[in-house]
């Protein structure tokens, strides 16, 4: 463990060392692509940080026959590479390979993407909602497992006393897709993100990111699609249902106003269903 005087910098080599530093008040430093821009947002860098990059247990992706475990310090680039070709994870791969730009993707981690508080446009959030991911935390009181939806809602409180260590995924999707709308082809945060997945019983899961402050499942649309015949997996029909069941309150932001974020959802659903139908699992 390397610790500095002045600003305290701890490069932890185990989760226990990282938690010890957390208990002393150190903030978690992953890739730094969010935190290093804090001064530009008028926020001082933390007086003490604990870096996770030397903890081997947090830097690997384990792929089992019915389960995938992603370490919180895995970068977007590694995630995309490791899951490439894994059936059902097309959406997660697209999110990891489509966010930001190549240089950032080599550095920015899964944990950092989910723990950047007040970041509404995180690409991994909606697709992990569709995967019904479980977030594993190490808290001051011990380990804790939590559904991704609850984690996203409560992360402000949770992260005051915790480190995200791993993300657990079941392999129960046969196909998934991740559709994002940036204003330019690259470099922008997406205006809106729609992630979709289909399970073995052809039930569709849909989540939306960047439209509201926190990503969430689109349950009204999921229910409407389940109520209809299996042909609801038709892009045009899905877009009609999305228009009818659009219950989002768009947030106003630098890239776009709220009404626009909300309005682009039906065409994104249409693209998403078309992408789902092209994946191996449904083709």
């Amino acid at each position: 463990m390397a610790t500095s005087v002045g600003r305290l910098f701890t490069a932890a080599s185990t989760i226990e060392e990282a938690m010890a530093a957390r208990r002393q008040g150190a903030a978690v430093l992953a890739g730094g692509t969010w935190m290093m821009r804090d001064p530009r947002r008028g926020v001082d860098l933390p007086e003490a940080v604990v870096a996770l990059h030397r903890i081997p247990a947090l830097s690997k992706v384990e792929i089992g026959s019915d389960h995938v475990v992603i370490g919180a310090a895995v970068t977007h680039a590694v995630l995309g590479r490791e899951l490439h070709g894994a059936a059902g994870f097309e959406g997660l791969v697209a999110a990891a390979e489509g966010a930001a730009n190549p240089g950032i993707r080599r550095v920015a981690t899964v944990g950092g993407n989910l723990c950047a508080l007040d970041f509404a446009a995180a690409d991994l959030a909606p697709v992990l909602l569709v995967c019904e991911a479980t977030v594993e935390l190490e808290t001051f009181k011990g380990p804790k497992l939590l559904g991704i939806s609850d984690f996203l809602k409560d992360r402000h409180t949770l992260l005051a006393e915790a480190i995200v260590t791993r993300i657990h995924l079941r392999r129960d999707l046969v196909a998934s897709a991740h559709i994002r709308l940036p204003l330019r082809k690259a470099g922008d945060y997406p205006v809106a993100i729609v992630a979709l997945g289909v399970d073995k019983d052809k039930r569709c899961r849909i989540a939306v990111g960047s439209v509201e402050p926190v990503a969430r499942r689109w349950t009204a649309l999921e229910q409407a699609m389940r109520a209809g015949p299996a042909s609801a997996l038709d892009p045009e029909r899905a877009a009609e249902l999305a228009l009818e069941h659009n219950d989002f309150q768009g947030r106003d932001g630098k890239e776009a106003e709220g009404w626009y974020r909300r309005q682009v959802l039906p065409p994104l659903v249409k693209r998403g269903v078309a992408a789902l139908l092209k994946t191996g699992g449904l083709a």
Binding site: F9, A11, L29, G32, M36, A51, H53, I104, V107
Partner: peptide
């Protein structure tokens, strides 16, 4: 990688 966002400690 971009060096502007890389804390030297890393």
């Amino acid at each position: 990688v971009p060096s502007c966002l890389k804390p030297v400690g890393l």
